[in-house]
Amino acid sequence: MTYRVRIENADGEVVTIEISADELREKGLTLEELLPPNARIVEVEEVEP
């Protein structure tokens, strides 16, 4: 499974990243732990691999 994640950074700019569930598991991280300081998740969407 892959996630498309929209993130708002500290400057108010919204960027989109895609990350797979396998990648998260391998790194032992959650989506929140990948965020840079002062950023927030705006939207998470599951996409087909």
Score class of each variant (00 low, 15 high):
Gly28Trp: 04
Arg40Leu: 13
Leu29Thr: 07
Glu48Met: 14
Val44Arg: 01
Ala21Glu: 11
Gly28Val: 03
Met1Leu: 14
Glu45Phe: 12
Val47Trp: 11
Ala39Trp: 15
Ala21Pro: 04
Arg25Ala: 10
Val15Leu: 13
Val5Tyr: 03
Asp22Phe: 12
Tyr3Leu: 11
Val15Gly: 06
Pro37Glu: 13
Glu18Leu: 15
Gly12Asp: 02
Ile41Phe: 05
Val42Pro: 01
Val47Pro: 02
Ile41Tyr: 03
Leu29Asp: 02
Ser20Gln: 06
Ile7Ala: 04
Asp22Leu: 12
Leu34Met: 14
Met1His: 09
Glu26Pro: 01
Arg4Gln: 03
Glu18Gln: 08
Pro49Thr: 13
Glu18Ile: 14
Met1Ser: 08
Ile41Met: 03
Glu32Tyr: 11
Glu26Val: 10
Val44Gly: 01
Pro37Ile: 07
Thr16Cys: 06
Thr30Gln: 07
Pro36Lys: 02
Val14Leu: 13
Asn9Asp: 08
Gly28Ser: 06
Pro49Met: 13
Met1Cys: 06
Thr16Trp: 08
Val15Cys: 12
Leu34Pro: 00
Leu31Val: 06
Pro37Gly: 06
Ile19Trp: 04
Glu43Ser: 15
Asp22Thr: 13
Asp11Asn: 13
Gly12Val: 01
Val42Cys: 03
Val5His: 00
Asp11Trp: 08
Ala39Pro: 02
Ile7Trp: 14
Glu32Asn: 09
Tyr3Trp: 12
Glu13Ala: 11
Pro49Gln: 13
Glu48Asn: 14
Glu8Val: 11
Ala10Met: 13
Glu23Lys: 05
Lys27Ser: 14
Leu24Met: 13
Leu35Met: 07
Val15Phe: 15
Asp22Pro: 02
Val5Lys: 00
Tyr3Cys: 03
Glu32Cys: 04
Glu23Asp: 10
Glu13Lys: 12
Val15Ala: 08
Val44Cys: 06
Tyr3His: 02
Val14Trp: 04
Val5Ile: 12
Glu48Lys: 14
Ala39Asp: 03
Leu34Tyr: 15
Ala39Gly: 09
Asn38Asp: 14
Thr30Cys: 05
Val42His: 03
Thr2Met: 14
Glu23Thr: 11
Glu45Cys: 15
Asp22Glu: 12
Glu46Ile: 15
Met1Gly: 07
Ala10Tyr: 11
Val44Met: 06
Thr30Asn: 06
Ser20His: 09
Glu13Cys: 07
Glu46Leu: 15
Thr2Ser: 12
Asn9Met: 15
Val14Pro: 04
Ile17His: 03
Glu13Arg: 13
Val15Lys: 08
Arg25Asn: 12
Arg25Glu: 10
Glu48Pro: 14
Glu32Phe: 09
Arg6Lys: 15
Ile7Tyr: 15
Val44Tyr: 07
Glu23Phe: 13
Arg6Gly: 02
Arg6Asp: 02
Val47Thr: 05
Glu32Ser: 09
Arg40Met: 09
Glu43Pro: 01
Lys27Cys: 05
Leu31Trp: 06
Leu34Gln: 03
Arg4Tyr: 04
Leu34Val: 09
Glu46Asp: 04
Asn9Phe: 15
Glu18His: 13
Glu46Phe: 14
Glu32Pro: 07
Pro36Gln: 05
Leu24Thr: 02
Val5Pro: 00
Met1Glu: 03
Glu26His: 10
Gly28Phe: 04
Pro36Ile: 03
Ala21His: 08
Glu45Thr: 14
Val15Met: 13
Gly12Cys: 04
Glu13His: 11
Glu18Arg: 06
Glu46Gln: 09
Ile19Val: 10
Thr16Glu: 07
Pro36Tyr: 03
Ala10Glu: 14
Ala39Phe: 15
Glu45Leu: 14
Leu31Ala: 01
Ile17Pro: 00
Thr16Pro: 01
Glu13Asn: 12
Glu26Thr: 09
Ile41Lys: 02
Glu23Arg: 04
Asn38Ser: 06
Leu35Gln: 01
Glu43Gly: 11
Glu8Asn: 02
Ile41Asp: 01
Glu13Tyr: 12
Glu43Ile: 07
Asn38Cys: 06
Ala21Val: 09
Glu43Val: 07
Ile17Glu: 01
Glu33Gly: 07
Gly12Asn: 05
Glu32Ala: 11
Met1Pro: 10
Glu13Val: 13
Glu46Pro: 06
Glu26Arg: 11
Gly12Ile: 01
Glu46Val: 15
Asn38Glu: 09
Ala39Thr: 15
Glu45Pro: 01
Ile41Asn: 02
Gly28Cys: 06
Arg40Ser: 10
Ala21Thr: 08
Asp22Lys: 12
Thr2Tyr: 15
Gly12Ala: 02
Ile41Pro: 02
Ala21Asp: 08
Gly12Thr: 01
Val42Asn: 01
Pro36Gly: 13
Ile41Gly: 01
Asp22Cys: 11
Val14Phe: 13
Arg25Trp: 10
Leu29Lys: 12
Asp22Arg: 08
Thr16Asn: 05
Glu8Ala: 08
Tyr3Arg: 01
Ile7Cys: 05
Gly28Pro: 02
Pro36Thr: 04
Ile17Met: 10
Val47Ala: 03
Glu33Ala: 08
Glu8Met: 12
Glu43Asp: 14
Glu43Thr: 12
Ile19Cys: 05
Ser20Lys: 10
Tyr3Thr: 01
Leu35Phe: 06
Leu29Gln: 06
Asn9Ser: 11
Leu31Ser: 00
Asp11Pro: 05
Glu23Val: 08
Val14Ile: 14
Asn9His: 14
Ala21Met: 09
Val42Gly: 01
Lys27Trp: 06
Arg40Lys: 15
